[in-house]
Simulated scan of single mutants.
Amino acid sequence: MTRTALVTGVVGGIGAAIARQLVDAGYDVRVTDMPGTALDDAAGALGLPAYPADLGHRDSVAEMVAALPARPDILVNAAGGVRGQTGRPLVEVSEEDWRAIFAANVDSAFFLAQSCAPAMAERGWGRIVTISSGAGLRPSLTGIQAYTSAKHALVGLTKQLSLEFGPQGVTVNSVAPGFVRSNPATERQWDAMGADGQRALLSRIHTRRLGRPEDIAQAVGFLCSDAAEWISGQILSVDGGVT
């Protein structure tokens, strides 16, 4: 029986690379992201069926999951990001901006787990992988207070879900990428560092190179496999040795 997978956030480079990795591994993959032409284009490039949803809202997630042919065996939460924000002094951050980043990074993972994890538990097998960040383990290079807070919260949610669903054969892990130039936001961050900042960042990476979306996707593929069946509640840093 072919296992099914749902990958979120495929408009970004990391999410798209994860979807390709899981297809290559033989899974039946569906993808989701915000409704619009960006999702249509990404799904078309991948050759995969798309199920649009605003993942920061419980009802939208529930409707999207209900539209799938079946509840997925594998859920990869690659949606998130900085929502177009940049680092600002604390007093300048609005409530709306704070909540937007939590909705994208934490609420989405929580609502998706609510919709998908119980069916995995009933079947006695499942994989949930969240994409956190080095910002979930230490202060963020972005300087965005909400982003590092949300990624820390996502790490906590990952560990809690592992405790809850591990007895039913569902593993829950997170991949914490280092700096990967995978979307317009990370390109802006890279450019804003300037030549000196870029050199300084590379000097802290043991392998002396930035990450690629494929580096993250390969780690996710392993955590979704049968080879990782006794790995749960873990945060795997994929960052070239920074951590």
Rank of each mutant, 00 (worst) to 15 (best):
R127M: 04
A5K: 15
F102E: 10
R212I: 13
G26K: 09
R83C: 08
P184S: 11
V65A: 06
A70Y: 00
M193S: 15
V180S: 04
G194E: 11
L154T: 07
P167C: 12
D33M: 05
D41Q: 09
A121Y: 02
G134P: 13
V31S: 07
V175Y: 01
G233R: 11
Q218N: 11
Q168I: 00
R188Q: 15
L22Q: 01
L202T: 07
G143P: 07
P72I: 01
F111M: 01
I14A: 12
Q160H: 11
G47R: 08
P167F: 01
G124Q: 06
A135L: 08
R20N: 14
M120G: 12
D40Q: 14
D28S: 12
E214W: 11
T8D: 14
A146P: 05
D54F: 14
Y147H: 11
D107V: 00
P184D: 12
P213N: 00
A200T: 15
S225V: 10
L137Y: 05
F102K: 06
F111Y: 08
Q85Y: 06
M193T: 13
A185S: 12
V29R: 08
C116V: 13
N183M: 02
A227C: 06
V23A: 11
W125R: 06
D28V: 10
A70R: 07
R181V: 14
A45G: 13
A45Y: 00
E229M: 11
F179W: 07
G84Q: 01
G124T: 00
F102V: 02
D226E: 14
A227M: 07
A25E: 15
R83M: 02
D191L: 04
K151W: 10
T207N: 05
H57W: 09
G87I: 02
Q234D: 14
S108T: 02
V170S: 04
R127G: 03
A50T: 03
W230Y: 14
D215F: 04
P118R: 05
S108C: 00
L39R: 05
F110E: 03
I231H: 07
R30V: 12
K151Q: 15
W230S: 12
A79F: 01
D54I: 15
R212C: 09
F111I: 05
L157C: 11
R83A: 02
L141Y: 15
L223Y: 12
I101S: 01
A62L: 06
S60K: 08
D24M: 03
Y51L: 03
P69D: 07
N183A: 02
N183C: 04
